[in-house]
């Protein structure tokens, strides 16, 4: 049971990254490659504000949300908007510019706080909890709960608010949405800011789990994408399922076969699912990035 809890906790991390990806996907149809790195920035920022500035965890979360929301805004303004204006929202150029922004954030983190890994104790304690016969840390419980609540909340927002519904309309047919008075640019900008803010808000919980190190950016980016692709582009509940699948495969394959096997199994599974269902398990027909 410990392996299952471990898988669900790792899966919760990837599900949260996938939710971040999905916000910009669902609202603008754009895959934001920087999301995983923005979440790493959120971890560094939480460490900085809680250890160096002695802010309480909630203060660090709010400050992180503001700063990372601004980073999301900058990414949209500098790496996305000019490309969309010239090539539209579905060109390969966007992939290049968001990868460029990813590298810039990585470089800024390494230059500011270095490559030496740091750790941040979890504000909720570290005493091991035994649940249904399996061991898990308090931070694991928090992450699973946060992932479920966040995915459900975003599912409701996307389906029941004018912002969410406008996003769907803008993604399906931007020209038609514009003709109906939808401000597509504002939708895209707010989506990038919200995704960034989510990364910063989660810093005080993510950092104690994944550590504070530039090396984890690649893991978050790749496995967050796998979670999104498995679960389905455009579906927040799919992110949850995809994240759990990735986490459970990583934990069980890592334990029984060794560190080399989880990526092989996961990408094999990904290829299989995308061949059968290119939008992922619960994805929307209009959204594909592969």
């Amino acid at each position: 049971m410990t392996t299952i809890w471990t898988g669900l906790a790792i899966g919760a991390v990837y599900a949260l990254v996938a939710v971040g990806y999905n916000i910009t996907m669902a609202q603008s149809g754009i895959f934001n490659f920087t999301q995983g790195q923005v979440m790493v920035f959120g971890c560094f920022f939480a460490w900085f504000t809680m250890v160096d500035l002695n802010l309480p965890w909630w203060g660090a979360a709010v400050a992180g949300a503001v700063v990372c929301g601004l980073i999301g805004l900058l990414v949209e303004l500098l790496a996305v908007r000019p490309v969309v204006a010239r090539h539209g929202a579905h060109g390969h150029a966007l992939l290049v510019t968001t990868v460029g922004a990813f590298v810039i954030i990585l470089g800024a983190l390494a230059a500011t706080w270095g490559r030496t890994p740091k750790s941040l104790p979890f504000f909720g304690g570290s005493e091991t909890v035994t649940l249904l016969g399996g061991k898990l840390s308090p931070v694991d419980l928090w992450l699973v709960a946060i992932a479920v609540v966040t995915a459900l909340a975003m599912h409701l927002v996307s389906g029941r608010t004018s912002w969410g519904l406008s996003g769907r309309a803008a993604t399906d047919n931007p020209d038609a949405a514009k003709a109906k008075g939808v401000n597509v640019t504002a939708l895209r900008t707010t989506a990038f800011m919200l995704a960034g803010a989510l990364g910063g808000l989660l810093g005080p919980v993510l950092a104690p789990k994944v550590g504070v190190s530039v090396s984890i950016g690649v893991s978050l980016t790749i496995y967050g994408f796998v979670a999104l692709a498995l679960g389905g582009f455009g579906s927040y509940l799919g992110c949850l399922v995809g994240g759990a699948a990735v986490g459970l495969v990583q934990a069980s394959a890592g334990r029984y076969f060794g560190a080399e096997y989880p990526p092989l199994i996961l990408f094999g599974l990904l290829v299989l699912i995308l061949l059968v269902k290119p939008t992922g398990l619960f994805g929307h027909r209009g959204l594909r990035v592969v």
Partner: peptide
């Protein structure tokens, strides 16, 4: 010998192994 990927976000499985 049990190895943990440098980019691992959790090493519980390897510790169990």
């Amino acid at each position: 010998i049990v190895t943990v990927p440098v980019t691992a976000v959790d090493a519980t499985s390897q510790m169990q192994q």
